[in-house]
Design a protein around this nucleic acid. Sequence first.
DNA 1: CTGCGTGATGTGACTTGGTAACATCACCCT
DNA 2: AGGGTGATGTTACCAAGTCACATCACGCAG
Lengths: 213, 213
Amino acid sequence: MVGMARWEPNARERLVRAAVDLFAEQGYDATTVNEIAERAGGLTKTTFFRHFADKREVLFAGQELHSRVLAEAIAAAPESASPLEAVGAAVFALTDTFTEDRREMGRQLLVVIGKSAELQERAAYKRSVLADAMDGALRERGVAEPAASVAADLGVRAFGGAFARWTGSADGRALAEFAGEELARLRGAITELGWHRESAGALDGAGDAGTAD
Amino acid sequence: MVGMARWEPNARERLVRAAVDLFAEQGYDATTVNEIAERAGGLTKTTFFRHFADKREVLFAGQELHSRVLAEAIAAAPESASPLEAVGAAVFALTDTFTEDRREMGRQLLVVIGKSAELQERAAYKRSVLADAMDGALRERGVAEPAASVAADLGVRAFGGAFARWTGSADGRALAEFAGEELARLRGAITELGWHRESAGALDGAGDAGTAD
DNA sequence: CTGCGTGATGTGACTTGGTAACATCACCCT
DNA sequence: AGGGTGATGTTACCAAGTCACATCACGCAG
């Protein structure tokens, strides 16, 4: 006990774990910041807010990093890449940062968010921030609006769909695999948008999605 | 004074006006709910929260109505309409509810929202709710995912872009006109998504946007 | 005219998110 | 041993949001 530090290290991580656990147990609204801090090893409200700007942020801390990853991947894409190819590269760059050990946490996260309107609001904001990051990077490389925004939206949607399927599946397939399928499905869907009822199903197979759900 | 009611009618509208004015004058964060209620004719915090679930809601009260308008327009679209045509009909149904006298208010709204991260978050959520409404209506008519979601996203983007240009312009053109242009631009952009750098500009004119900015 | 119900409002007390100023303690380096 | 430094705790405070209860004007039945 003598050599024990006054405060355990990794307070930030402990706060995240405590928050996710408590949110899962009691729900987001019913959980108090003081509770989180307390469970994270006898900390206090003040310490929590030194690490996170507000109560929601404990679940969305990675947002800035994710934005950077997406934007940098688009900037690094080959000059000849189409907007959709650049976005695809960005999505894969992001999926590669999610290793297998983060899958369970991701699953819990989606459940918690799904039960709280406040968190869904925050999630929608995060999606728009990620889309803006890709949009900006695309315009940097000369893609005009609104193509850049639309491509960015598709990228966000691909990642979101892949993440949901990844966390919901039990097999060991990587997040990137799901992302590839989602991107292919989206490419295919785009061609359907203008189709009328009667002609649906005429064309097909332009980038199928494999194990679509 | 004798015949004067204890409380003026239309408390709700007065609260909205007071809120928009105060937000424009001092910013959203610097404005207190008590201030809003006070300026709206000597009301109190309690009354404010009887009309609006929280401080943000005073600016986003129309959300449910808008969702219904969009969903019903899609449901009412002719059987033969393509997903994009159905979405277009929905966007026009919504734009038609914005008469000229609401333009100035809309302008103020965008300025206020643009200065507050909290309100931008709420705006992102509203966009996702509107998209969900259209997505659900599209699936009702047999459109598969992810085409339905993508079409819904495009509709939201068209409306948002049109609304921004409408409030930013001085001429008397209706919101629907801008929406038509935005939809056309988006249709055109979709075809560019897969183009590579070298082939860009080869095709053109498939649904141009007229006075694109 | 009296009285009663109803609806919109006000009051006061409370919880919680979030901020700020100041104090404390362990560690590390000199 | 002494002096920073960084992460933390304490205390006090404000504003968002909730709740139970009181109030007042109105309309309506008698």
